[in-house]
Nucleic acid binder design. Structure first.
Lengths: 356, 356
DNA sequence: CCGATTGCTTCATACGTATGCACACTAGTT
DNA sequence: AACTAGTGTGCATACGTATGAAGCAATCGG
């Protein structure tokens, strides 16, 4: 069917055997020579290298994987790439993984049913980064049972595993403190989903912060929803429909907050004069002049890169080079838990409440 | 070192041989039974299925790949994920690939040197989607030489291959027509890089459109730069420094345009009153109330999905189910080229020039 | 009652690389 | 000259699945 012999050089489907033949050595010697085995003589290495180059030899990843039981691939699981938040995790993750000699397989969890889980445990990846795990997900347990190493990134789950997260509770507190300090008393919130650790902890921290100041969070001023643009856009309309209206609103993350700001523009609500808005994460977009969002900053890039390093250390077995990092190691089953410190960033979407 | 026997069920590292043993058949029979080979008796299939389930057997992808020479993985190459444009390609790509039974490996081309190319041709992927190919890249030629199937998405290259693109020339013309129609005569442009087909063709079309209307594009009003937010932000400042100042500016894509709008906010420039801004692509962000960007729409989602389908058809050999699509097939070497129609979308960032 | 046909299964092997072990060969020691 | 130590290479095989070909049993036709 195919006439491959047309092109001058047929360097497709070249195996280590072909290289061996050309170099006048055995196949195992080719393998050793190219992998830098010190037992191979310099002279042989040279011959093999030349032969490999001449044939444009590239070792087959499949063969290598099968033999070594290592794929050098790491899976990354997110819910929805088009959410502006995730690229800021996936981008650095990719770069760090590449730096460590691993490739990235990207998965989005439409149907995290067992069907999808199968694709993860067929040994085609060495480990998995869970970037959007929900607390009620059965996946971590399944992964654990299958002994597929994984790490929680950003959100954590109930099954013990390495994790890298922000101190979300503290972050929520920070926002509460700032809003209180500015003089707000009628405060609203658009929290993230209850089944995410980020949503839950930020809510706990925020409520705690308000409670410490003796300020009540009226149920009518509270919304919950996914960490999406639309959540903020829709929730704002609802919050404006309450009486009295809140003078400030804390949003589960920046994407939600930007949804709020955008809706405010459409509805003619002045921010921050009529409503203070605070987000969480400090994604790059938050600092755009169009938003100037006051938010809680943490090092997203570092968080993602650390996740990559934790996982790779785990799957490659050399945990050693991670010990000295300043993490609050949890001795129990050897899981590592890295917590990033959040900082409040004051921009232009919050101020004192107007005296209405 | 590891004490794996602790957990009750040791369903890790289960192979088809284990299943075979439990089911009382041979390993090949297991393979055939689970793959639905009609030659296996119903009774055997049932026994094998039960055994597989009991052991929680999942076929090894590495073994399968090695044997079939098919990895069921497709690579996707982009420059920078954090650019808000790419997720809108990568997301749909992932979904469509998954639908077709393929997994996605994501690559970003930092150093597209031959070193990086090696990772692509080690037969660990069946094909590659080039989402950000530059016209001067040597990669397509290398892929072609290696006989790794690939498809151009959004941007096309010089090496013949399947491609799916927008009619960028026409899109550029559309914008020129609209701006002319609105009465603009002092028009500026922030074009994309010359070494991208999108940058080049949009520029050609736009220039043509202006020329047809007898309007000159002054060199001082022209900028070139990568399709990034910062490009727009920086170029705006420069354009405002010219005399006379343009009353309208066409941007290479939406991300650049949003950079312009954002900078305008910072600089206190009213859009569209002082400056009309038009983008290209109509990414979701363009329709946010914060921007309401007038732009050129095309079906990004469909473009990505079509790329996936074209490539999968190519690598799986069943090109048949693609023939009937309304594409302008290029007979030469059997490459398919799908062109999407662009449409102008009038929002709120353009209007008539102010009489100053 | 034997040869032919069909239906199901096993055998043998391929896929490409990596690695423990044995072997050959050289050099140095006694 | 034999013996040891050291060095470099090849042999055999493992990794897990898929598949053409051969084998086996049962059924059928004559």
């Amino acid at each position: 069917m195919l006439d491959r012999d047309r092109n001058g050089e047929a360097d497709v489907g070249i195996t280590s055997r072909d290289v061996a033949r050309l170099a006048g050595v055995s196949q195992p010697t080719v393998s050793r020579a190219l992998r830098g085995d010190p037992r191979v003589s310099e002279d042989t290495v040279r011959r093999v290298r030349m032969a490999a180059e001449a044939l444009n030899y590239v070792p087959s990843e499949a063969g290598r994987s099968l033999s070594t039981q290592i794929s050098h691939r790491i899976g990354v699981l997110v819910t929805d790439l088009t959410n502006p938040f995730y690229p800021h995790l996936v981008g650095p993750l990719h770069d760090e993984l590449e730096r460590l000699g691993y490739r990235m397989m990207l998965f989005t969890e439409r149907s995290e049913a067992t069907a999808a889980a199968e694709r993860l445990v067929d040994r085609s990846i060495d480990g998995l980064v869970l970037a959007t795990s929900t607390l009620d997900s059965g996946l971590p347990a399944e992964l654990s049972r299958r002994q597929l190493p994984f790490v929680y990134l950003n959100r954590e789950g109930t099954v013990p595993a390495d994790a890298i997260v922000v101190d979300n509770r503290r972050g929520g507190e920070l926002v509460a403190e700032e809003l209180v300090k500015a003089g707000h008393t009628r405060i609203g919130a658009i929290f993230g989903p209850d089944n995410t650790s980020t949503g839950r902890d930020r809510e706990i921290g925020f409520r705690q912060g308000l409670a410490d100041a003796g300020i009540a969070l009226r149920p009518a001023h509270v919304r919950h929803g996914p960490f999406e643009f639309e959540t903020g856009a829709q929730a704002l309309a609802e919050l404006l429909d309450t009486d009295p209206v809140p003078t400030a609103v804390f949003c589960g993350n920046d994407v939600v907050a930007i949804g709020v700001i955008d809706a405010a523009r459409r509805l003619g609500v002045d921010i921050p004069e009529q409503l203070s808005v605070v987000g969480f994460d400090d994604i790059p977009m938050a600092s755009w002049a169009s938003f100037e969002l006051s938010t809680v900053r943490h090092d997203l890039d570092e968080m993602a890169r650390t996740a990559a390093r934790l996982l790779v250390a785990r799957v490659s077995g050399d945990d050693a080079n991670l010990e000295p990092s300043g993490v609050d190691g949890n001795g129990a089953a050897g899981q590592r838990r890295v917590t990033l410190e959040p900082h409040f960033v004051a921009r232009r979407t919050h101020c004192e409440p107007s005296q209405s």
